[in-house]
């Protein structure tokens, strides 16, 4: 079991109760999962289920109350350059230009490099995200999409072994988001890093991920299932929706989030020990599970549609 690239075992996050005698509030517990090298994993769940805590813990910026994290045989203890982070709010340093922001990361990563080397390497990544023309602008002079590209360039340029993306496109409009998703696919294909990403957008997850972790609602959330996405790569937004399995996967995910995520609780009879999320491949489970019985594929129920709108207000809605 310790062969995995990243191994999280029985992680939990608890906050002290409101009063002295109140029981502690458990956000999630018994969360265990593995990430393989080179894998792109998305994690989806409703707000408050602790996705960001898991991500921040992996980044070393937060701590679990319980559990262990191991990466390549070494315990994760505090932040480090082998793990890069892209934050939702970009987190660029506003007094530096786009190029200087990327250089900031590259310089920290390779301290012995000459100025020229640092600049050339930074420029290469800024070019990859299509920002060659605006490298001397400050973040305030860039659009939201451009800022997030700089942030992505900074993270990829330091070549971390594990890249953590915390809802990187959450604050962007649908069109910009699509363009940057394509760029993310491109840059990820180029470097083949291991990526762990939080998202709220089902389509985005299907487009990008090898596996999607589905979290149940908090408190006492856990990762219920690990959905395998075996759509052929390279994928792109326009083509992927035409794939015969796309809607099968999409419906499965949406059904989980809308109908099942709130019902699934830690079962009384569930084994207390190490518990990994159940691997699921929606393409094959179609008729065998009861999961899809209340979601006819041919005629979507209107009530269901409404819930959909509530859940992903920003997503691009196909067809």
């Amino acid at each position: 079991m310790s062969h995995a690239f990243v191994e999280v075992q029985q992680a939990a996050k608890r906050f002290p109760g409101a009063s002295k005698n109140a029981p502690p509030l458990t956000v999630f517990e018994n969360v265990s999962f593995q990430l393989q090298k080179g894998e792109f994993v998305c994690i989806i769940g409703h707000s408050g289920c602790g996705k960001s805590t898991i991500m921040n813990a992996l980044a070393g910026l937060d701590q679990f109350s319980d559990g262990s994290m191991v990466m390549e045989g070494k315990e994760i203890n505090g932040p480090g350059l082998e793990r890069g982070v892209v934050f939702q709010n970009y987190s660029l340093l506003p007094w530096l230009t786009a190029l200087e922001n990327v250089r900031f990361g590259v310089r920290a990563r390779w301290k012995a490099w000459s100025e020229r080397q640092v600049t050339e390497h930074s420029m290469e990544y800024l070019e990859m995200v299509g920002l060659k023309e605006v490298v001397s602008r400050k973040p305030s002079q860039l659009s939201g999409g451009m800022r997030q590209r700089v942030s992505i360039a900074r993270a990829f340029a330091t070549k971390p072994k594990l890249l953590l993306l915390d809802e990187p496109f959450g604050a962007l409009d649908a069109l910009t988001r699509g363009v940057i998703q394509d760029e993310l696919v491109k840059i990820w294909t180029h470097d083949q890093q291991t990526v762990f990403m939080i998202t709220h957008d089902v389509d985005e997850a299907i487009l990008l991920a090898d596996r999607i972790f589905l979290m149940t609602n908090g408190p006492e959330a856990r990762i219920a299932e690990a959905v395998e996405i075996d759509l052929p790569r390279p994928r792109n937004r326009a083509e992927i929706i035409k794939h015969p399995n796309f809607y099968k996967i999409r419906n499965y995910l949406v059904d989980f989030l809308v109908n099942r995520s709130s019902g699934l609780r830690v079962q009384e009879n569930e084994p207390k020990g190490l518990y990994y999320p159940t691997p699921v491949n929606p393409v094959h489970v179609d008729s065998t599970t009861e999961a899809l019985t209340n979601l006819p594929e041919t005629a979507p129920v209107t009530e269901h549609e409404e819930k959909l709108v509530k859940f992903t207000p920003k997503e691009i809605r196909h067809g």
């Binding site: 980044a59 070393g60 910026l61 505090g78 932040p79 480090g80 350059l81 793990r83 890069g84 982070v85 934050f87 709010n89 987190s91 340093l93 900031f104 990361g105 920290a108 990563r109 330091t158």
Partner: peptide, 19 residues
Amino acid sequence: DWVNVARTHELSSLKTAFK
């Protein structure tokens, strides 16, 4: 967030203070 940027890039305390 900015301090976190410094932390994730493993900047020393002195470098964090100045940069």
